[in-house]
Amino acid sequence: MSFLRLATLIRHGGRIAEPAPTAPPLFPGAEVFGGSVQVRYINAGGCNDCALEVSAAFGPVYDVERYGARLVPSPRHADVLLIVGSVTRNMAEPLRRTIEATPTPRFVIAVGDCAIHGGAFRDGYGIVGPVSDFVHVDIEVPGSPPEPTEIVQALRRMTGR
């Protein structure tokens, strides 16, 4: 794409982000983050629809980054683990290790019905159980899949912004 076309696109694009809804209350214990939350996203075995919604939440329209949440490439950098999908047999151990590798204080958000209680895959042969079987879940975002706005609101409870 040429320089000029890109410049024109940027000029016409303007602000894509939607106006911010009112802030939810701060999650108790998340004061320590002070408006900066690094998120490690884990797909423990979902069908990718929650994953799409999560990526929409971090996209320009919902723009959860404006509230101070950011995706990071390593759990060592993370404050919040954003887990989607019910935990499959092959992901159980990596999930445990990822939780182990995350420095405290940390919080866990389970996104989608599958992550919360197994959802449609609950009794599947490859499923070990919902996320709460492995780690204490701090915030649950129900829905199959949930709206990006709900994911945004859950993360805003962590950032407090």
Partner: peptide, 26 residues
Amino acid sequence: TIEGRAGAGIWQPWRDLRKLLAKNPV
């Protein structure tokens, strides 16, 4: 801003730093 986002504000790195110093490293 250029990407059409709202952005986290120019003080966000400060918040990141403050928080990183308040964590227990692994």
